[in-house]
Design a protein around this nucleic acid. Structure first.
Lengths: 116, 116
DNA sequence: CAGCATCCCGAATGATACTG
DNA sequence: CAGTATCATTCGGGATGCTG
């Protein structure tokens, strides 16, 4: 038996794999919205993420789509309408987002407490 | 400690808060090592993260330290020796890292399966 | 409305050398 | 060994305008 490391961050590091998918300035935030509602429209996401430019939102959605995390449905009409939703694969990410949400809430509360 | 990237979603968005602490190219990977072992040395972390430059490792450790996630102990000797470990606060992040690890392993396995 | 193309800047990171 | 200093470079992402 080889003396091999149980965990390594050289190749196949699970953290790096996860980061590969959900890093990017807005992806985790986008996915957070999907844990709250199954379906979203472009404009709606935009209104919920005012600091994310239209360009960035489009880019990040596109990458999430090409990674198989979300899928979009285009309704050919004028004006155009697009619906985004998590794929089954994308849903497997929910626990990660939930953990981030939970810790963020804890962190925010802790910060408030420290002001008093 | 200047020029840190700020992630803004909505006010008090928990995801934003979490990203503020663990985003950065290597922080989550560093924390991952801390979930496996309580104490780490600089050189040891470096050997486990060959793609992270010494400079980046030092930078990210410093930020994690100033955010209260890890603490370091310096043993004044020659050659110098420094130990890093999670603070109690830092330990609250473990579930987040664990969720990322779990998903990353799932993702890696899934990728392997798809090759066959 | 949703999204792409172009131009551009500055933060993030790398490379290299130096030090207690 | 465990960093820091300095310079160079990449690239994420902002601003704006155009289009189906």
């Amino acid at each position: 038996m080889k003396n091999r490391q149980i965990y390594n961050c050289q190749e196949g590091c699970p953290i790096e794999s996860t980061l590969q998918i959900i890093s990017g300035k807005w992806k985790a935030v986008i996915l957070y919205h999907f844990t709250k509602n199954n379906v979203h429209h472009f404009g709606e996401l935009q209104r919920n993420m005012l600091d994310c430019s239209r360009r960035m939102l489009a880019l990040q959605l596109k990458e999430l789509e090409s990674d198989g995390i979300i899928q979009k449905t285009i309704y050919p009409a004028m004006p155009p309408k697009t619906e985004y939703q998590l794929t089954a694969f994308g849903e497997t990410l929910i626990p990660v987002i939930n953990a981030m949400e939970k810790w963020g809430n804890y962190y925010n509360q802790r910060s408030l407490d420290r002001l008093n």
